[in-house]
């Protein structure tokens, strides 16, 4: 088999970045006890808003910042509905996806067929020239490194900071957290907005780097994969990277094998990551002590201070 593992891994890292970004955001949201199924909608809003900003300012960086803001703004709709107006989270998230897909197409009218400014590769003091590790690790644009950095930050935040402890407490048992004087709703809204901005950046990575162009409906289900990755990772930040590379990798590997003339049962192969996710989930849940360390107990439950 003459598949270059090096270039395969390098491509895989790029392919996994949008879903890794979105999944990192969703992890924080779920850790706070909220299930936002609107990731797809927030991603595509980020994709178009980031694209518009980057094209008009000729700066990918501004594009990503605007994408984050746009994703956060859209997620605020979800936050108001679920946190203040106590609407069901599943239904609100689905409505958010529908709304985001439509709005992005309206905003993107007139932006098809435009080339975004290209995102420069990071300069690692010539390390990109190194054999093997060079192309895999040191030849990417800044967002790839940012996405991994973000995972690190989220891990540190959850594990070592007081804020992380509070966030987990809120997700674990909102009644108790409330009794301890924490502002459950405020914390959750911040978490939701963080999730929105991450999803927005993930979407922008699609439209600015990975594809790079704007087309209606271009996220094509990436947001749903991000949701799966959070579960696969059993709410552990580092495992997100593994999950994202696994999910992204299956597609890349499959396409590369095909290009090499191997016949692929494509649809059955595409199921595999989801089945693995279920298995992981089952293993995690079967041990009740371990499960309680990861899956937020209040996930998806509505909180009202006086109830």
């Amino acid at each position: 088999m003459d598949i270059s593992i090096v270039s395969l891994l390098a491509t895989l890292i790029v392919a996994a970045t949008p879903i890794l970004l979105a999944a990192t955001g969703e992890l924080i949201v779920e850790k706070s006890g909220v299930l936002n199924l609107g990731v797809e909608g927030m991603m595509i809003i980020g994709a178009i808003c980031g694209f518009i900003a980057a094209v008009n300012t000729d700066s990918p960086l501004i594009g990503f910042i605007v994408a984050a803001l746009a994703g956060a703004a859209l997620s605020l709709l979800f936050a108001v509905l679920t946190q203040y107006l106590l609407a069901n989270q599943v239904a609100s998230g689905l409505a958010l996806t529908l709304f985001g897909l439509g709005l992005s197409a309206l905003l993107g009218h007139g932006y098809s067929g435009i080339k975004p400014p290209s995102s420069p590769k990071m300069e690692w003091f010539g390390m990109a020239e190194l054999p093997v590790v060079g192309p895999i690790f040191f030849n990417h644009d800044m967002m790839v490194y940012f996405s991994i950095f973000l995972v690190l930050v989220v891990w540190l935040f959850l594990k070592f900071t007081r804020g992380g402890l509070i966030l987990r407490a809120v997700g674990e048992n909102h009644e108790a957290a409330h009794a301890l004087g924490y502002k459950v709703i405020r914390i959750r809204i911040l978490a939701i907005m963080f999730g929105g901005s991450c999803a927005g950046m993930g979407g922008a990575y699609l439209s600015l780097v990975r594809v790079p162009q704007w087309t209606e409906g271009m996220t094509a289900g990436a947001g749903w994969i991000a949701l799966a990755i959070v579960v696969f990772a059993s709410w552990k930040p580092w495992r997100l990277i593994l999950g994202a590379y696994l999910f992204g990798g299956v597609t890349i590997l499959q396409l590369n094998l095909q290009a090499n003339g191997f016949d692929m049962p494509v649809s059955y192969l595409s199921m595999a990551p989801y089945l693995v996710t279920i298995v992981v989930l089952v293993i995690m849940s079967a041990d009740r002590r371990r499960a309680s360390l990861n899956a937020p107990a209040s996930l998806g439950k509505i909180f009202h201070a006086s109830s």
Binding site: L35, V90, W224, L227, A228, V231, P265, V266, S267, Y268, S270, M271, Y274, L275, T277, I278, L281, V282, M284, S285, A286, R288, A291, A295, L299, G300
Partner: peptide, 30 residues
Amino acid sequence: FLKIRFNANEILVSLMLVYVAFNFLIGMVT
């Protein structure tokens, strides 16, 4: 079954199974 036997969250399992079903459908019609 996974909920009863292993306490696995049914929200997430049922959601994952949507993708499995969808890919199964593609496998069947192709």
